[in-house]
Design a protein around this nucleic acid. Structure first.
Lengths: 132, 132, 132, 132
DNA sequence: GTGGTCTAGACCACA
DNA sequence: GTGGTCTAGACCACT
């Protein structure tokens, strides 16, 4: 399920954060759905529980999930988050990636195409949501 | 000339590598042109020479420059990078960031604005640093 | 009647303790009045009875209620709390939070607004939960 | 210098975060001043370095300090932070403390007094800053 | 020597 | 069983 690169220069917990974000954004993990428990996931990935914790905590501060002692960790409603700070952060990251892309020679057509793809993907996710 | 962000989480040597790459790719530094000597640059930027060294070494292994003992470092004849592979990678990363941005609630207007900004920035030949 | 925030980082039993304390202090629950039974309340709030138990036990050790085997829990004759000590503590905490707020750039207008809000909320007899 | 309560229910790292925030806010630690290194502080307080790290990291995400690998951790310029998200968080916390204070019976006079005290304290801090 | 990541293992608080 | 904190100790990346 998760493919982690233990040799990568990118820390394991950051890889985890990214993967989980993707799952949430792509609506694989729905609102209020329970994430795998820290220990379970740790065992599954044969990784130290502390490392999982660190990832979950990061996701929590970024507003993607919330954790309840004794119960587990759950996907957050993004509506509630109203995440101005996070938006700023993401926009900055996006700005960099766009610069890279233009620099390496992406065309405006390719960019428009990409945006269209993503929009449709999100739209699909939102539809799935309606049955909640 | 170089604007390094000492506070950035991105290591200084990496910032240097990026800056120099961009200068090379933008043809500000021409083929076979001599790069500033390690000591000069170190003094100019008031940075440890070792850090410059590391950046130059990195650029060498990545094929952007070559060093001649006792003479200095020089810009390599760049192979027009087989950017298909690289482009694909960047596009994939861009797709993810776009999905994140939409998910967190970026508006199309904001996105257009961002793209416009980046286009102008590229036009001016600028670039950015700083990292998450 | 009770609004518990299951997502809050503050444990449910603590939320319960606070709510009940306020009800007692506000004289909504009168002296010697019987509290709802553990099972009833548990069912009503769809919460584990153990959690209610823990809250009641806590209230008992804090002197707010007393329990009679086989009969239930009852509101204690409240000692008019020696609030001088408590007031001092709260004021100190408030001082710190105010300093933080000013430091981070709260304006006097925002502060006045906040105070006004809280005053009205108190007037309405409300209260809040959720914790950092 | 630091008085930590190892028995407290409040985690050590949170106590550390609070103490350090206070030092920063009260201008005991000036802008760009170097904080004690993780290991040093750990030794001084006879606490595990990881715990200090956790505190420093929290302060970093809250925008109070910034850390540079190989150099150390430093007090941030608050101007740069423009911390809308943090302001929101602090305001919420302040709201709760105000509610507590009113509830326990603080008078408006006492509150005004408190605010005046804090304002003067901040004013003093800013004057000290002018020699920077 | 600096911050940062990770592990193994223990213990606590909560439901 | 769940999340959360803490320790001891190792190793890495950067300056």
């Amino acid at each position: 399920m998760f493919e982690l690169d233990l040799r990568s220069r990118k820390p394991i917990y950051e890889q985890l954060v990214e993967k989980l974000k993707q799952l949430i954004i792509n609506d694989v993990l729905k609102q209020d759905e329970k994430l795998p428990s820290v220990r379970m996931l740790a065992q599954q990935l044969s990784i130290n529980p502390n490392t999982i914790q660190k990832a979950y905590r990061e996701l929590e501060t970024q507003g993607y999930i919330y954790s309840v002692k004794g119960k587990g960790s759950f996907v957050n409603h993004m509506v509630i988050t109203e995440n101005t700070e996070e938006l700023k952060r993401i926009k900055e990251e996006l700005r960099k990636k766009l610069a890279e892309a233009f620099f390496i020679g992406i065309t405006l057509e390719e960019l428009e195409e990409l945006i269209e793809e993503v929009k449709q993907q999100i739209a699909r996710g939102e539809q799935d949501d309606s049955n909640k």
